[in-house]
Amino acid sequence: HSIEQTEMMELPASGSLNPGKLHLVSKLKNPSGSCSVDVGAVWWERAGSKEPCIITACEDVVSLWKPLDTWQWEKVYTWHFTEVPVLQIVPVPDVHNLVCVALGSLEIREIRALMCPCDGEHGKQALLKSGDIKAVLGLTKGRLVSSSGTVCDQQVGVMSFAEDGGSKEEQLLMPPEETVLTFAEVQGMQEALLGTTIVNSIVIWNLKTGQLLKKMHIDDSYQASTCHRAYSEMGLLFVVLSHPHAKMNESFGSPVFQLMVINPKTTFNMGVLLYCLPPGQAGRFLEGDVKDHVAAAVLTSGTIAFWDLLLGHCTALLPPVSDQNWSFVKWSGTDSHLLAGRKDGDIFIYRYS
């Protein structure tokens, strides 16, 4: 077992916008030096108490880190993947001792469940799904939704896990006649699920009955949009989308996220707000995550940018540390921290206030 020392670092001040919002609290140094692909958080229960742990993924290894005192971390378990590389970590909310991973080269070929080790035992893993998998997302109440197959034989299914990560069952949802690329839960509506499709539609399912409730075409200005957050208010559906292919606009800059409003009854929709980079900042959306009213995105420039979705503007910029570009960013599902990773495998944990 290796123990990594916590290192308090000064935030890079030059070029930072409101750096006071970000406080580096801890760092996990990658001892292997191999290419890091993702990070996530999981609750690990041992001897009756639950601890918020970090999961890191390199192409061939997934590691579980438990917290020690004063923000130090101890690597307690690793799962090895020699045949198919790891693509992403898929946290499953409301269950403990379990995290899922998506494996594949360019597209997802397998989804596996990793069971965190109980006292004196080894961590186990189980194959949940294999094939041509297009999208996967962990949902509240210990559920996992995925879409697979081609548009002709597309299968959309939801698996359910027990709170301790045990037993699972799968329910099929009615597939739309378009390939589903991403999923998003509708906040506060446990039975509602959204999907975005390859031809820029948003679909809504009833998770309880498996019904496809609506398919709505949205603006064609931005292709391959990903839905990061959805909520319903006053009979309208609000969605936060990211636009990887959005181009710089002379009047308002480079749009990275967009808030759209949809009337699910009529399918009429319109853009409400564009979340753009501040003047002088270049780059497009590479990867990002939204939690409550804060959105974070890694840009093609290697900087991480933050937006307050209520205020409507960029609130902080985190430039590359030691000339190493950021490659991924995630909000922790176990607390309010931000997990930021670099290609060299080092993970930085920030408090955003």
């Binding site: 039975e191 809504i204 019904q211 409730l213 609506k214 009979g235 309208l236 009854k265 929709n269």
Partner: peptide, 23 residues
Amino acid sequence: CSKADLGPVSLTWFEELSSEAPP
């Protein structure tokens, strides 16, 4: 654009769409 452009809204849209959609 305004809210009126979105057409009539319903607070119970999810239940209504569920009762209208094929099972």
